[in-house]
Computed example of a mutant assay.
Amino acid sequence: MRIRKAHVLQHRLCEKLPHRLLQEDCGISFLYRTIVEEDLRSGLLREIPLRDFHIRHDYTFLWRKDSIFSDEIRRICLELRSPGE
């Protein structure tokens, strides 16, 4: 049980680290808007609009082995694949 709690704590710290560094004026980052929307509204962080910039990255989907949702999740993954993959 301790290992699981430590893992959750570590995950939360890693998830918040880039956000915290930005708050301390330690650089520029690309983050999901939902993570920083409150700080954007309050003025603690500022968005830098970029022209003609498009970014693409991979997603990883994980689910329990033998889940009743496995077929549905696989269908969604196939829908989200880029053409030509």
Rank of each mutant, 00 (worst) to 15 (best):
I35A: 07
I28L: 14
R20T: 14
E24P: 00
C14P: 00
K16A: 13
V36F: 02
H19Y: 14
P18S: 04
L17P: 00
L22H: 03
L13R: 10
L13A: 09
C14S: 10
L13Q: 12
K16Y: 15
L21I: 03
H7V: 12
C26M: 15
C26V: 10
L21T: 04
L13M: 04
A6F: 07
F30M: 09
F30P: 02
P18I: 03
Y32V: 01
V8M: 04
A6W: 06
A6K: 07
K16W: 12
T34G: 04
I28C: 13
Q10Y: 05
L9E: 15
Q23N: 07
D25E: 13
I28V: 12
Y32Q: 10
D25N: 13
R33P: 00
V8P: 03
A6G: 01
C26F: 12
Q23L: 15
L13F: 09
I35K: 07
R12V: 02
E24C: 06
C26L: 11
L31V: 03
E24W: 09
H7Y: 03
R12D: 09
V8E: 14
R20L: 08
S29W: 03
C26T: 02
R12G: 01
R33H: 05
I28M: 15
K16L: 10
G27F: 05
Q23M: 09
V8G: 07
E24M: 10
H19W: 08
H7T: 06
D25K: 14
H19G: 02
L31G: 06
L17F: 14
H7A: 10
R12M: 11
H19S: 07
L9M: 10
H11V: 01
R20Y: 14
L21Y: 11
R12T: 03
K5R: 11
E24A: 11
L21P: 00
K5S: 11
C14V: 06
S29A: 11
K16E: 13
Q23I: 09
H11Y: 12
V8Q: 13
H19D: 07
G27V: 05
I28H: 15
P18C: 07
I28D: 14
R20N: 15
L31N: 06
R33T: 01
R33S: 01
I35G: 01
L31Y: 02
V8W: 03
L22V: 11
V8A: 04
I28W: 13
L9N: 14
C26R: 08
C14Y: 11
L22P: 01
L17E: 13
Q10N: 12
T34F: 02
Q23F: 03
Y32P: 03
E15Y: 14
R12P: 02
G27C: 07
L21M: 13
L21W: 06
K5G: 00
R12I: 00
G27D: 06
Q10V: 06
L17H: 13
R33I: 00
K16C: 09
P18A: 05
D25I: 02
Q10T: 06
L13K: 06
Y32T: 04
A6D: 11
C14Q: 13
E24V: 02
S29P: 00
F30Q: 05
G27A: 01
Y32C: 05
L17K: 13
L17W: 05
